[in-house]
Every structure is written in C-alpha cells, then in structure tokens.
Measured scan of single mutants.
Amino acid sequence: TLFEALYDYEARTEDDLSFHKGEKFQILNSSEGDWWEARSLTTGETGYIPSIYLAPV
C-alpha cells in the first residue's frame, strides 16, 4: 500500500525524512508506533516519518 503526505514536514533529527504535501511513500516498517520507516517515491530517500501526516492512496 502506498501512502501520500497530507502536509509538509521538516525533519527534526537525522533519522527523520523531510517531505512535501502530496509526496508518495512506500512504507518499509510500520511496527515502531506512530513513526514509520518509509521510502519517498519522489526522492528515493528513506527515513522516519510521522504516520499521522499520511493517508493511504
């Protein structure tokens, strides 16, 4: 399942991933609670993103 960003997000740590509204992600690991490891389909970068900023596509 792909997810789309509902809002912009600016990374706060080196493990976080910055993204823009409308960016799409492949989720790599969603077992860490509210922060999911994801790969951006726009940039190819991976990192942790807040799941509350996402909606399934």
Rank of each mutant, 00 (worst) to 15 (best):
24 K>L: 15
55 A>F: 10
54 L>N: 00
23 E>A: 06
33 G>S: 13
18 S>E: 03
47 G>S: 03
46 T>G: 03
20 H>N: 10
20 H>I: 11
19 F>W: 02
32 E>R: 15
23 E>F: 04
50 P>A: 09
9 Y>D: 01
46 T>A: 07
36 W>T: 02
43 T>M: 02
45 E>N: 12
55 A>D: 04
9 Y>W: 08
18 S>Q: 04
48 Y>C: 09
9 Y>S: 03
27 I>G: 01
50 P>W: 15
12 R>M: 11
55 A>Q: 12
33 G>K: 13
44 G>M: 07
5 A>M: 01
49 I>T: 02
14 E>T: 13
54 L>Q: 01
54 L>G: 01
7 Y>R: 11
14 E>W: 09
49 I>D: 00
47 G>M: 06
44 G>S: 05
21 K>G: 03
40 S>P: 01
35 W>P: 08
19 F>R: 00
52 I>A: 15
19 F>T: 04
31 S>I: 10
30 S>H: 11
28 L>Y: 06
49 I>W: 01
50 P>Q: 13
43 T>N: 06
7 Y>S: 09
43 T>Q: 02
30 S>A: 12
18 S>F: 03
17 L>K: 03
54 L>F: 10
48 Y>S: 06
40 S>A: 06
13 T>G: 15
9 Y>I: 03
51 S>H: 10
24 K>G: 03
24 K>C: 08
31 S>F: 09
47 G>D: 01
40 S>K: 12
51 S>F: 09
1 T>S: 11
49 I>R: 00
19 F>G: 01
39 R>I: 11
57 V>M: 08
33 G>A: 14
10 E>P: 05
48 Y>L: 12
53 Y>W: 07
11 A>Q: 07
17 L>N: 01
36 W>S: 01
28 L>H: 04
17 L>G: 01
14 E>H: 13
27 I>K: 04
41 L>G: 02
52 I>G: 13
6 L>Y: 03
14 E>C: 12
24 K>Q: 12
8 D>E: 07
54 L>T: 03
11 A>N: 05
17 L>P: 02
52 I>H: 13
50 P>L: 14
23 E>S: 05
9 Y>C: 04
32 E>S: 14
29 N>F: 08
16 D>Y: 14
44 G>C: 09
7 Y>D: 08
17 L>Y: 07
43 T>A: 02
22 G>H: 06
24 K>W: 14
1 T>G: 11
57 V>S: 08
35 W>Y: 13
49 I>H: 00
31 S>Q: 11
54 L>P: 00
35 W>E: 04
16 D>A: 15
17 L>H: 03
11 A>F: 03
11 A>M: 04
29 N>K: 08
22 G>A: 04
30 S>D: 12
34 D>S: 10
6 L>T: 06
44 G>N: 08
17 L>Q: 03
57 V>Q: 05
38 A>V: 15
25 F>H: 00
4 E>Q: 12
50 P>Y: 14
28 L>W: 05
32 E>V: 10
4 E>V: 15
56 P>A: 10
